[in-house]
């Protein structure tokens, strides 16, 4: 929990990377990710090169590498997936630490991990050096359709509201003796997630009313 909280990803600074135009940074990110994804999985020198470029930009931005690395936990589900691949893939088998695994599976897993890590690091760097609403503004500059930009900007805003709501619920739970470490308490997590959903949903409804009250007429204008 606690991830996805817009401004928690942001690392305050005044480096050239921070000051660059958001839409330039967005283009650079998309270009970088496309390049990484398009590179064959076994072209290891290329990946080393990408990593070096990324490291140089990180150094220039003044964001501590540990700050970014800590936040790569979002990658965890992919790591788990990558670790499974060698066991379930077909093809010639090889042995690693006495365990038989699929060779193409191993290469695919390696590629997935490298590409995933590079992509995640680059995205985190963007998030760390660009305020969420500037990202949205950058997308607008890049001529993303207005309704999409609007939806995104509400999302940015409401990630915080939902995050705060979640924080308050956590405090309320903790004040009444709840500890997330105790497995006997886990069913509570599921139930409070349900409550969080309903609270966020109802908030969404109220926001919708507030929008209508200020003359928002969906579907009536472009």
């Amino acid at each position: 929990m606690g991830a996805g909280h817009g401004h928690r990803l942001h690392y305050h600074g005044h480096s050239p990377v921070h000051r660059a135009e958001p839409h330039h940074k967005l283009l650079a990110l998309v270009g970088f990710v496309l390049l990484v994804v398009a590179t064959p999985g076994d072209a290891y020198p290329f990946f080393a090169g990408y990593l070096a470029v990324l490291a140089a930009v990180v150094a220039r931005s003044g964001v501590p590498p540990s700050y970014l690395l800590k936040r790569t936990v979002v990658e965890l589900p992919f790591v788990v997936f990558a670790l499974i691949v060698p066991f379930v893939s077909r093809g010639p088998q090889t042995e690693v630490w006495g365990v038989t695994v699929s060779e193409p599976g191993l290469v695919a897993a390696g590629a997935l991990l490298m590409k995933g890590t590079l992509g995640v690091l680059a995205s985190l760097l963007l998030a760390a050096t660009t305020e969420p609403h500037d990202v949205v503004r950058g997308l607008e500059r890049l001529r993303m359709p207005a309704p999409l930009v609007q939806i995104l900007s509400f999302m940015v805003r409401y990630l915080d509201v939902v995050g705060d709501e979640m924080g308050r619920m956590r405090t309320a739970l903790a004040s009444r003796g709840f500890t997330a470490r105790n497995p006997r308490h886990w069913p509570v997590i599921a139930r409070s997630a349900g409550a969080l959903f309903i609270r966020s949903y109802e908030r969404g409804e109220r926001v919708h009313l507030a929008m209508l009250s200020r003359g928002h007429a969906p579907g009536e204008r472009a």
């Binding site: 609403h133 949205v136 900007s153 805003r157 908030r203 109220r206 009313l209 507030a210 929008m211 200020r214």
Partner: peptide
Amino acid sequence: FQDPDDQLFMPTVRDDVAFGPRNL
């Protein structure tokens, strides 16, 4: 509205205050 969090939904104060007049 009673709860400002229901009323303020844009990323910056400027965008939020502009929301209504822009709809007009």
